[in-house]
Simulated scan of single mutants.
Amino acid sequence: MSPSSRRGFRFSHFGMFVSDIARMERFYAGVLEFTVTDRGQLAGASGPVDLVFLSRDPDEHHQIVLVSGRPASLAFNPINQISLAADSLATLRAMHARLLEEDCSEITPVTHGNAVSIYVRDPEGNRLELYFDLPWYVSQPMRLPVDLAGDEAELMARFEAHARSLPGFRPRTEWRAEMARLMGLA
């Protein structure tokens, strides 16, 4: 655990019920490049339940667990979003191109002022947010559609100019130091 993290607990993984486990595995492993680390079956209240464990981190056996048994149609999807952080704007832009090639639904690039995000639906309609943190902070919520085409340096300059016009603009390092104080970590 990082010395700048809260002691006690850290986020590790989540599981979600799915209708078509093979289709969901193909998406998370093929498109988002998770690795299947295990799979198996357990007894469930209504019969056997299939599980597929996936991770992008060799220190985490699984970061996502796909579990069979979700009804094909639900009146409401309780998952607001599943968010994955990109290591660079280049990575995010490459994934944007990949999602367009895969003909995924509802691909929406936006800026939140302090991050650039791509919202997209997985094959069962769960909303994903793939994002890259920008080096500054602005007050939230904030959301504006963006075009990710063009030169990366020009994009970053546009993102920063926009962020500077928003309430709360400051370097991310200042915001982080304030949050560390509020969390009792400073």
Rank of each mutant, 00 (worst) to 15 (best):
I21T: 04
T111H: 03
G150L: 09
A149V: 00
R70T: 02
S165L: 02
E60Y: 14
H162F: 00
A85R: 11
G8C: 07
G113T: 03
E101I: 02
E129H: 03
L130V: 04
R172W: 02
V116R: 08
L100V: 15
I21G: 07
A85H: 04
L74I: 15
H96E: 01
S105N: 02
P135H: 04
L148G: 03
H162N: 10
Q63N: 02
G30H: 10
I21M: 06
S68K: 03
P171H: 03
L84D: 11
G113H: 09
D151P: 07
A97W: 11
L54G: 07
E106P: 00
D38L: 08
F76L: 09
D50T: 09
D57N: 15
A97S: 15
D59R: 12
R6H: 08
L182M: 08
P58M: 08
S4N: 09
L128K: 00
D122P: 09
R6D: 10
E160L: 03
F132V: 07
N77L: 08
S12M: 02
G168D: 02
V31S: 00
I79R: 02
H13P: 08
M24V: 02
V18L: 02
M95W: 14
H61D: 08
D133V: 07
S73I: 06
E25A: 11
A45K: 15
A161H: 03
L66E: 02
V146Q: 03
R39E: 12
Y119E: 14
